[in-house]
Design a protein around this nucleic acid. Structure first.
Lengths: 304, 304
DNA sequence: TGCTTCTATGAGGGCCCTTCATGGACCGGG
DNA sequence: CCCGGTCCATGAAGGGCCCTCATAGAAGCA
């Protein structure tokens, strides 16, 4: 019974496959800073530590995560995917502690990162968040305005930058693969034009980048009226500004019309008007988190 | 730039708040087993290690997670919430590695880890892998022979040790939960016995561990012939060897008969013969990877 | 009162992460 | 051309952390 037996120090070798939180943080930092040295500086570590850590991570994952070059490190496809997951894991670790503390006190607390496109952040979220924080004072919502281009708000959620996304959803792709969500409201498009204009339909159509034409394209196809010209602006706020100055007319969803200035007339397009769906998106693992569920409940209640 | 800085050994104290994977595993085990000692036994650890770990976890989380009592440990509300999150974190950590590998293979090539039972690895995979590597020279298949006991090849896939598993599938449980797959071939069992034996059915039945009797049990139930004795051997190779030496007869699937030595006679069991299904199993994440899809395509093509 | 079965706690050892030194590779300028 | 600058890689040494080994305390049961 002395120290004779070495008492197998590591009976299971399978444990060597999971990544520790510090490894995840290093992975995320390298992905963000695009370099080992830069990541080391941000983390307060040595470049050597980062190099060793990434090396070990690549061994455990079984894939090359970064392309090392003279100008730093650029993530491979595997590295990008791994960093996205790492952000989600770290986020979930944060909520674990926050919600465990909340469960002890019977409250709901912790940060809640929301990605939303501009008009949703300005006109849809404020009343919702007001009621949410009134009901759960511990929740700290944080809204990031994201342009609904490319992956958009859903991309922010998938990559672990946000917990919940407010997104426009085409009928074709309701929710991206690997995420979950639902439609909250279906809002109509209306015609907006300078007030008192004699022939608004003769003006050029003003559109903006985020307004993926697919929502209105089908409607246009059924119209015998085709605008002579189309002007593309930066965002829906700029569209309204142009219309109010008499420079054109536009087809805009209801959310964007909350900020309609004077000098603008809004015309309903009738029963066949185009619509777009606005919904929420989150990850499967966060969907069961208390704060996310509380937010979704308020969103649903607000849609009426 | 000299050694002016005191080189603080622990510059950040915030790192002390996140939970390592092994702590999460212990947390989940205690929640499931309702006791420190029971969890320790399951994890192959000491009760002391579990106690220390939970203590540290509670300190990091900032809440009491378990109510210690005479009959073990029962989770508090905070403990239940924490354990639920811990399970999600562990699952996300698993998918991290799997999806990173999948993303890497999405490019062109990479290692492809296949878990297969013995006879599949010896007689089913070689021609398939030959065509696969001929078509995709970048793919490096790596076959692990796994005994089809317990979780078997599906377990290897579920635990992230393999990308694709070749498994025998009972009609009852086609594919384990959380994994996806499909049946490739349905192969018949045949009677094998020493060549020229006057009364082969009077010999003892030779069976082997992996041959989960469930496939043939139903067939036996419909037979009026019940073997006098059953001998259990290590694997199907040993069964064939015993039969060839006249020590018994056996009911074996076609795949195992590829290596039939001389002195063995194979008899078809007729239209009501028992069959077993052999299929592939993979994870949803990897199912979309190029190499895995390429392998499955070749497997399907080979089944004819 | 023993026996059994829980958990708690302190001391010590080994693993692993980090730092410290290097070194190699590459680029641009004098 | 070489030299300084910027990357990352690598091997060796140190320290923190986690685990095991003891041992103790507490509670139920015969």
């Amino acid at each position: 019974m002395t120290a004779a037996a070495p008492v197998a120090p590591a009976p299971t070798a399978a444990a060597a496959t999971d990544l520790a939180p510090h490894e995840l943080r290093i992975l995320v930092a390298v992905d963000r800073e695009r370099g080992f040295s830069a990541a080391a500086k941000v983390l307060g570590l040595t470049q050597s530590a980062v190099s060793h850590s990434i090396h070990g991570t690549e061994r455990k994952v079984g894939a090359v995560l970064f392309e090392r070059g003279r100008k730093g490190a650029t993530p491979t496809a595997a590295g990008t995917a791994a960093a996205a997951h790492a952000r989600r894991v770290l986020r979930l670790l944060d909520t674990l502690a926050a919600e465990a503390r909340g469960a002890e006190q019977g409250t709901v607390a912790g940060p809640l990162r929301i990605a939303a496109f501009r008009s949703a952040a300005l006109y849809l979220l404020p009343p919702v968040l007001e009621r949410l924080t009134a009901r759960h004072p511990g929740i700290e919502p944080e809204v990031h305005v994201v342009r609904e281009l490319g992956a958009g708000t859903a991309g922010e959620v998938a990559e672990g930058h946000a917990d919940v996304g407010i997104a426009t959803m085409g009928a074709s792709s309701p929710v991206p693969a690997g995420l979950i969500g639902d439609v909250l409201i279906e809002e109509p498009y209306s015609l907006v034009h300078p007030a008192g204009h004699p022939a608004p339909r003769s003006l050029p159509l003003v559109d903006w980048h985020e307004n993926c034409g697919s929502y209105t394209r089908q409607w246009w196809a059924g119209q015998d009226w085709i605008p002579k010209a189309t002007v593309l602006t930066e965002d829906d706020g700029a569209v309204l500004s142009m219309v109010s100055r008499g420079l054109g007319m536009a087809i805009m969803p209801a959310l964007s019309l909350n900020e309609a200035p004077d000098g603008i007339e809004i015309t309903d397009l009738g029963p066949d008007r185009p619509t777009r769906s606005v919904g929420y998106i989150t990850t499967p693992e966060l969907a069961s988190s208390v704060s996310v569920r509380a937010l979704i409940r308020e969103l649903r209640a607000a849609r009426q």
